[in-house]
Amino acid sequence: METSKAIKLKVNGKQLELLAAPNSTLLEILRNNGHVEVKCGCEKGDCGACAVILDGEAVDSCLTLAWIADGSEVQTVKGIGTEATPHPLQTAFIEEGSVQCGYCIPGIIVAAKVLLDENPDPTDSDIRVALSGNLCRCTGYTRIFSAIHKAAQVMREGAQKNG
């Protein structure tokens, strides 16, 4: 049986070499290496709490084997923005009161980020489909939807100014 090997991951811009067994998931190696902002809610792709951006695509890190992610670029909620340089999504989530217990939020911001990268002016329906893999039990999503609309608007206005 093959044992662990070092895999290369660029996580939030930082190149890492992490030890992973064939049966390690991306979720496990991220969390075991300090990226506990990636949450674990079900380990089977039902809840989306563990979502990360893997080479531009939102994936459930619990359903991604670490070896298969070898050589990839990973972005977690912390890579999307920080207190010093918040992403408009984070600002909007804070301002709109979209955060309650907060456990689903890292995954939801990941899914929303990928949506807005791809679709700067999403409809309500686009947002619903994009978040269909993210369970939130506290908010009823209403304020999450409004925050995503708001962030999209801020980003479009920003792009206009810069363009």
Binding site: A111, V129, L131, S132, N134
Partner: peptide
């Protein structure tokens, strides 16, 4: 494909 599972699962 649109009705398939949730977004992240669709991506994988």
């Amino acid at each position: 494909a649109t009705a398939f599972a949730g977004h992240m699962v669709r991506c994988t």
